[in-house]
């Protein structure tokens, strides 16, 4: 768990499987993500369709390359959005110390590693999220994040090819984290 809590950078391929009540079948998307402590995230969906989400502090840029759309947002404008995005980033960085302010956190020892369960302490998070579970491998690397949303929908993001604490070059920083 200590190495999980000392993540400074993270690179991984992901597969995200979303169960949405509006749809007959789950939605599955694949791509790569990059994280840099304390608050930078690059989330690039490669299929189906191409989409890129860049978070730097409270600034967010969402680009849908296939649709030629790009929007910039400031998370300060929405308490809920800020809390949700911030939660995901803190999970990727293993910042349990920060998460405890907004969630009841429980760490469980599993056969192949650890599981961290987060339950929102109250508004505004509980209006968007029912719970988050993060599965951590024995070497401390994050393997899976499950989110149960207030709408009843849920998602499971599985990480592969995880590289932890490999510094980003200046070019990579610019390419990944410019909102």
């Amino acid at each position: 768990m200590r190495s999980f809590q000392e993540v400074r950078t993270l690179r991984a391929a992901f597969t995200d499987r979303r169960e949405v009540d509006l749809l007959d079948e789950p939605l599955v998307s694949r791509g790569r993500l990059h994280y840099q402590r304390p608050d930078r995230l690059h989330y690039a969906v490669e299929s189906p369709g191409r989409q890129e989400i860049v978070v730097a502090g409270s600034q967010v840029r969402v680009s849908q390359r296939d649709l030629g759309r790009s929007r910039s947002l400031d998370l300060q404008a929405s308490d809920t959005a800020r809390a949700v995005v911030s939660s995901l980033i803190q999970v990727l960085g293993g910042r349990l110390d920060r998460l405890e302010a907004d969630y009841l956190c429980r760490s469980l020892r599993m056969a192949d590693g650890w599981e961290v369960r987060l339950a929102p302490r109250g508004p505004p998070l509980d209006r968007a999220v029912r719970g988050i579970e993060a599965r951590i491998a024995g070497d401390g690397s994050l393997r899976e994040v499950r989110v149960r949303e207030a709408t009843g929908d849920s998602s499971r993001m599985t990480l592969e090819d995880v590289q932890v604490n490999v510094p980003f070059s200046a070019e990579e920083e610019k390419a990944y984290f410019t909102p």
Binding site: R18, V20, V45, P48, Q51, Q64, T151
Partner: peptide, 17 residues
Amino acid sequence: RQALASPSGAMDRALAP
């Protein structure tokens, strides 16, 4: 569908019905 597949699609999801 694309919006619902994205973690940024919270508003679209909320309004989708």
